[in-house]
Amino acid sequence: MQAHVIPGIDEAELLDPLHALWRRADVSRIALSGTPLGLQPSPYVQAAWRDRRVGATGHVRVAALHDGVRLAFRLEWEDASRDAVLTDDDRFADAAAVMLPAAAEAPIYTMGAPGLPVTAWYWRADEQQAREIVAEGVGSSRTVARDTVRAAGVWQAGRWSVVIARSLTAGGPGAVQGLGTGAAIGFGVAIWEGGSGERAGLKSWSGPAWQSLTLEPTPTARS
């Protein structure tokens, strides 16, 4: 998949999932599946979900754009129920995240490993701010920043459209190596269907292998 470059994007337009800008992006349809129960770090979750289906979302349409400064993903998926308010204690919110390697050899399958972190740009329908998350293995995810990742979601006619963006050059523990050099980087997508009780490791994901993303070189870089 390629993220086209549009120099000088207005951030408000970029973060609007319904903005015409996004018609200029390539769209990939990525099939999703439920995360394997054996990957759940909690024996309780393994027992409680043994007979329940994990992975309520079958596929996601992914697009990406950048302007040389920030990279944005647009995710669109079908969801008959908008779960954006925790109206009771047994309700969960819809959520989505894009995962990127924060170390060259970081495995996506286990959400990184000790010393091999991954970063996730995480949006949840009931939270005002998106989160930049870093993980070094299943169950180790921690929020490292709440002001670096910007996201916005719109639910309309049975589908969510969500844009998740971050600076290409953001430092800190969630810095992504090689972003912006024109080389291919890996990414993964996860969708949580709150109405089905999906949260934490219970989600639909793009699978145990990194998807490939290249950033179209910026005009200045090209010259």
Partner: peptide
């Protein structure tokens, strides 16, 4: 072995 439980509602 962990046993599944039900999440109580607020009410």
């Amino acid at each position: 072995m962990p046993q599944p439980g039900r999440l109580p509602r607020r009410g």
